[in-house]
């Protein structure tokens, strides 16, 4: 039972994809201007993550390793499009907010990363829980970040109150505010982690360890490319 609990909970705090592993940065920065947008992106990505983890885990013995990555991408792209169509049909307002970032879930490195690092090697049940845990961690980080940006940037929380509680500090909602808040959040995460976890060492650079293309990154390290 322990390993099931572990595969679910690790994504939420210990290996939080956004704050600890620093993955999926594009959607994290882009849709975190409003809580509704952050929550919508989180839920949509979690759906794709869980479904693709289940399917890939089911197929893991059938897919030849030569075409592993293309096969994963096809499965992920399929679920991404399904989410896109469902949102367009039943929650058009969320589809409007997420716009281009909705189809771009397909290249969210958290999803391909989990497929490669976990679902391709573990049983269906574990993979589903892993996907759910990572998805919840991703969603929680997005909601936290968008709450901060919306509160300061528009003076509202999830659109309430309509005219804002105080004059907004527009830069928080601007792209620059995204980078800034993200930087501070990671700093806070490192501080808190160091306090509660004796063995914790903060990630110091944007290495490619969790990225599906880690192999080619190592080639780049020799050329002085990716962070060592």
């Amino acid at each position: 039972m322990g390993k099931y609990k572990e595969s679910f909970t690790k994504g939420i705090v210990k290996e939080n994809p956004v704050l600890r592993l620093v993955l999926g940065t594009c959607p994290t920065l882009a849709v975190s201007t409003t809580v509704i947008g952050g929550l919508g992106m989180g839920v949509a990505a979690t759906f794709v993550l869980v479904c693709s983890n289940i399917v890939i885990s089911l197929l893991r013995k059938l897919i030849p390793s030569m075409v592993r990555l293309p096969a994963y991408i096809v499965v992920i792209a399929g679920f991404t499009t399904i989410v896109q169509m469902l949102l367009k049909a039943f929650v058009p307002s969320i589809d409007q907010i997420l716009g281009i970032y909705l189809p771009l879930i397909v290249v969210n490195c958290i999803i391909l990363g989990r497929a490669e690092a976990y679902a391709g090697k573990h049983s269906v049940g574990l993979s589903a829980l892993d996907g759910l845990g990572m998805g919840v961690g991703f969603t929680a980080a997005l909601v936290l970040m968008s709450a901060i940006r919306e509160f300061f940037g528009s003076g509202t929380l999830a659109g309430w109150p309509e005219n804002g509680m105080f004059p907004a500090i527009a830069v928080f909602a601007a792209p620059a505010g995204g980078f800034f808040v993200f930087g501070l959040l990671i700093w806070a995460t490192n501080k808190l982690s160091a306090k509660f976890d004796k063995e914790f060492t903060p990630k110091t650079s944007f290495d490619c360890s969790a990225c599906p293309h880690a192999a080619s990154c190592e080639k780049m390290t020799m050329g002085g490319g990716c962070d060592e």
Binding site: V67, V74, G78, M85, L86
Partner: peptide
């Protein structure tokens, strides 16, 4: 295998499309 996966995914998408 890759072709089969593609075919199944496309079929699933066509189904969802009909629905939505």
């Amino acid at each position: 295998t890759l072709t089969l996966i593609c075919a199944v995914v496309v079929a699933a998408l066509a189904g969802t499309n009909l629905l939505t």
